[in-house]
Design a protein around this nucleic acid. Structure first.
Lengths: 218, 218
DNA sequence: TTTCAACATGTAATTAATTACATGTTTTAA
DNA sequence: TTAAAACATGTAATTAATTACATGTTGAAA
């Protein structure tokens, strides 16, 4: 029995440990870990998800973040390689060396049974948190007090340009990735979120254009 | 004249210094600063913007992030207080002590002329970066391959609930903050982004409901 | 009159993310 | 054949953000 002296306002924190990392068993092997809750670290799950689709290297994963899922999540190789090492240490993935050409050794990663379980558990668990949209333009608008502010027109036009380009890019992606029903059936979730993103950008542009005529005098 | 030995692929980085913090003058007072570019630190501008509306304390700012602009940006007091200190050191804000009751000393912050200039410059400068939306649900959907996946229905329903609540909250905010045309005219930018957020959530819910009937068998 | 919520202001520790540093191989096109 | 782009894998340094620690005051309601 360990008695812990709790200061004011810490009972809740203490209790949350049981919903956090306490007594989770296998994942905690040291005292330090036991008391660490930390931030969500979603990257590990995305990597597991991508490896679930196909065995691949850290470089392949980096490219996937640049092209395949770049619209929905960003991560650079300097996050990916260390995360792969941590996932392997944790036993969620393993790798095999593959020689290309004379001496270039690639590490091809794959999910372990434990990693598959962890991925499935993450997908199934609730996602009760709203997204923190950190849109700098939206924030600047907040500080524009008057409809007659001369900065308003140029700002709206700049953003219209930006989001129209993004919309076109997403539509191009949709044509590329989902040319027929078979492609949609094979990656239905991806289809859904691409459709969602297209409609979101489409609305964004429509909303911007609604006020486009304001402050044309600059 | 200083000669710097540049390795492969670093010329671009070097040139970017001139678009970054190099030779910006007053903001750089040491070598360390001169070579640091770092992340965007938008928080400082939001604080300047809020102080531009009204002199206030760190506590007031914290509350503003919780209620007033919480839908558009998040920051906690543990970010705000150190940032206030840095802004004051930089000469963008000053403060006056105000005694409440017997001995409670509040620090009421206000913009300096320099701070006002900095704020105006930030609002006027382009915002060419697209927002990184990090929506965990969207990401999970990406890994759902089939329209028949039994997890799909429950996931969509959970998110519908969540976003319908957020939509209702935003609509309530709109009624509260903008009961008449005068209120709209006095904070036009805020009105615009609230309208945008409402339409965004509205579309989100509509999109979720479109696929709601899938996988009702769980 | 006492206790609790809200007011008020900080710092410390940790985790996440970005930017920069660092190096070597293979393939492709001029 | 050679130079550049793409492939490939790391680490270091810095900044941002979150969570937790820490403490004290004031006002309102029971």
């Amino acid at each position: 029995m360990i008695t812990i002296n709790l200061g004011r306002g810490r009972v809740k924190d203490y209790l949350e440990l049981f919903g956090g990392n306490w007594f989770n068993g296998e994942e905690n092997n040291g005292l330090k870990e036991v008391f660490t809750i930390g931030q969500r670290n979603r990257l590990q799950y995305i990597i597991l998800g991508l490896l679930g689709q196909q065995d691949q290297t850290g470089y392949d994963l980096t490219k996937a973040f640049e092209h395949e899922i770049g619209e929905f999540w960003q991560a650079s190789h300097s996050q990916i390689y260390p995360q792969l090492q941590r996932l392997e240490t944790a036993g969620d993935i393993t790798h095999q060396d593959q020689i290309t050409g004379e001496k270039l050794t690639k590490k091809v990663y794959q999910l372990t049974a434990q990693g598959q379980k962890k991925l499935a558990a993450w997908v199934s668990e609730p996602s009760p948190e709203l997204t923190a949209t950190k849109d700098e333009f939206i924030l600047k608008l907040y500080f524009i007090k008057s409809a007659n502010d001369p900065r308003l027109g140029p700002m709206l036009r700049e953003q219209t340009q930006l989001h129209a380009e993004q919309l076109a890019h997403l539509q191009e992606r949709q044509r590329e990735v989902f040319p027929n029903q078979a492609a949609i059936d094979a990656a239905f979730g991806h289809y859904l979120i691409l459709e969602h993103a297209i409609e979101r950008e489409s609305h964004y542009v429509e909303w911007l254009q609604r006020y486009q005529t304001l402050s044309n005098n600059h």
